[in-house]
Design a binder for these strands. Sequence first.
DNA 1: GAAAGCATGTGACCTGCATCACATTTATAA
DNA 2: TTATAAATGTGATGCAGGTCACATGCTTTC
Lengths: 190, 190
Amino acid sequence: MNAETILKDHLLKIIDLNDEQFSYVFSHFKPMSFKKGQVIIAEGDKVSCEYFVTAGCLKSFYINDDLKMFILQFAMPGWWASDYNALYNDIKATISVDCITDAEVLCISNADREKLCSEIHAVEHFFRWRTNKGYVAAQKRLLLFMNNDAKHRYEELLNTYPQLYNIVSKQLIAAYLGVSRETLSRLYHG
Amino acid sequence: MNAETILKDHLLKIIDLNDEQFSYVFSHFKPMSFKKGQVIIAEGDKVSCEYFVTAGCLKSFYINDDLKMFILQFAMPGWWASDYNALYNDIKATISVDCITDAEVLCISNADREKLCSEIHAVEHFFRWRTNKGYVAAQKRLLLFMNNDAKHRYEELLNTYPQLYNIVSKQLIAAYLGVSRETLSRLYHG
DNA sequence: GAAAGCATGTGACCTGCATCACATTTATAA
DNA sequence: TTATAAATGTGATGCAGGTCACATGCTTTC
């Protein structure tokens, strides 16, 4: 399935757009290809775009002062990624985004998204819906962190993203769970 | 300042509405008063509304199987609160909301919010903006959790909400920070 | 296909924070 | 005001998970 179709399906699941409207919306997205390991947003960058994944897998992550990495999100096809704090507030990136595998994305600038949102009410509705989803998911994850130990978080991850386990290295899984790679290793052996 | 003015200022900071439009929007909100300790949303309730705080202080929280409480948010005047997962997805509440002090709120149903969003583009824009804010804040808090120990989270809280410290009991502060009340006590004494 | 570089497994040890226990101080209600 | 309950402080103890160290296995790449 090509990138355009993936985006179209994604939007039409939530809102109604006729062909002409969708073409207009789509014309604001720029297809881009990346190789495994390539960095899309680096810490300190000016962030002007967000990315809709159509193939492959990205991660968004934060690196602290001790160079320890924390993964906020894995982005598979049909998911969006960026440093939203930087994007919305026009500040430098603190969150980075890079490619876990070769990847294809559709890139849209913040300015173009805002333009489309103000021109087409349905598009604004779509983005409100999408952010609602993200907000609820972030809250759930926060509770998961506060409430559960590493073992429970690990089991939850297996249930929620069984595919991920084969694609992604254990180190990255550990960085997503917020435990050391040693502890993760001990969770599913010993 | 009365409830209507607080809501008006809050909306007009982000969007343009003429007096007639604002009156129409406002007519969908129902003012409600609560006493300290009163429960607004209890676990298991059907959730049909969200609440805009105009006076006092609410908390939204989760209670786990061991009866331990985790606070997601304190809601002061100008903040919104509900169980958004339950509200959007029409499921029973897992998050509760109650009053830390006597409080005044403006209540709007999910149905009415959606109606206003579809009738008035600017209102949809407002709610997209609001959820964006919430999403970014939730992500920041998640990182704070993954990255920092209890002491740092405590110091961060003091910086972010110095007012809260006088209003809210240490137990609740601890439940917000995700540490035991004993540990919190030791952080600022010993 | 050898060499260099990652990813993973596993032991030893340490530490931050939870839990339990109980004293003390501060609210709330009768 | 007094009685009862709730909030807070503080010691003793236990454990989940971090860190360091090193061995083994798996990929790249030249």
